[in-house]
Design a protein around this nucleic acid. Sequence first.
RNA 1: GUGAGUGUAGCUCAGCUGGUUAGAGUCCCAGAUUGUGAUUCUGGUUGUCGUCGGUUCGAAUCCGAUCACUCACCCCA
Length: 430
Amino acid sequence: MSTPKIQPPQLPKGTRDFYPESMRVQNFIFDTWRRAALRFGYEEYEGPMFEHLELYTGKSGDEIVSQLYDFTDKGDRRIALRPEMTPTLARLVIQKGNSLKKPFKWFSLPRLFRYERAQKGRLREFFQLNLDIIGTDSIFAEADLLAAITSMLFDFGLKAEDFVIGVSSRKLLNTYLQEIGTPDASKVYPILDRRLKIGKESFEMELAAAGLSKEQSEKLDQFMNCKSISDVDAIIQSEASKEALAEIQRLFGTLKAAGYADCVTLDLSVVRGLAYYTGIVFEVFDKGKSMRAIAGGGRYDSLCEKLGGSRVPGVGFGMGDVVLADLLNDHGLLPDPKQILDVYVASFTNDMDQIFKVASIFRAKGFSVSHPLAEAKLGKQMEQANNQGAKWVVYVDGDKAPEGQFEFKNLATGELGTGTPETIAKIISQ
RNA sequence: GUGAGUGUAGCUCAGCUGGUUAGAGUCCCAGAUUGUGAUUCUGGUUGUCGUCGGUUCGAAUCCGAUCACUCACCCCA
């Protein structure tokens, strides 16, 4: 007899709903990102949310498949929901080939998907700001990106003491590894990445497993301990290493001139997991106790080549919305999620036609306007005005107002007045 | 993939070592208030106590399994 109760629909693991309150916060992040990117002269682009699986496996090997959403479509094509934006960007660049004027600066706010276990700061669906500069080998491209990051974080209300950008160089690491005669550098990178996490003993053991002698391992440890450019300079020998270091020095010099010296530091422990980085790599850290990475990126001069195009140098970074929102929340920098409205149009007599008419007048003046959607007592209308965050109420049929004028009320102060739409508009705008 | 913690109203949670009809606050709805909201007061709705099974005269409470969520590890584009 009784209908079996069905399971209520559930939110998929690692995803979020954006009710209006969260959407307002989300849009604050998007708006701030977009404003900063545009201010630095980056142009926005977009791509599809899914790509051919090979676009990702080609770059990072098959292991990546376990960490992304993939499926076979009805045309028997292997498809993956995009887990990152850079391969799509590379595809765009390759497709247009030489017709793109270089260098150029692009940005995007992609929605990304990764099939992994959700935890703090990591979800299965999230957004990420991407800024990239394509078509130049110049270190000043890096300088531009780091300046943009810093300026953007300031926009969010963060202070120089809240975060730091750790800068390292794959080129420098590579030349130094050659200098000390490392057999297989690609095996060493992941170990360097974990160095601080695993401790000195495991570090040495893993390096030994990668084929390094005790002497090489010690040299490397000493190198990684360098805290400044002069520390590194004292250790390195080869011309190639000196060159790579000079590049970092040039970058820091420019950032200092631009007023961002406090925000960047040499940090050789920044390695980045990705194989495609070729030069400068960097990560932005929250200086709070968690030391989370808020953003990361670097130079990838051979990515386009690896994907079948010609060599096009590029440098870029990504900044996820999840960790950023957490961080801003910790600092109390997220906006009030409540709705805000300029005007609520009310009526004593439930004159709906007049309500719609007056609402149009104020909307035409550029205000956000709401009003009752059904007949309701005035008290109810006022409550609605309040709940919708209206700053002003305009009464369409107040008998204290002369012909052609309206009574209005400031909801914050309770002050009442009368005036024509023009004078009311002027008062509201102040 | 591994480990730990938590599941009671839309939300935050209480419910001691098993014992009537499962509670509070908040939110929401209505009224006090038929020409003026945010305060206050009054009343009201909301639950397979995550799910399934076991122990028991009796389970939100104890046990097992399972699912979900959270956190950490692995990984991190």
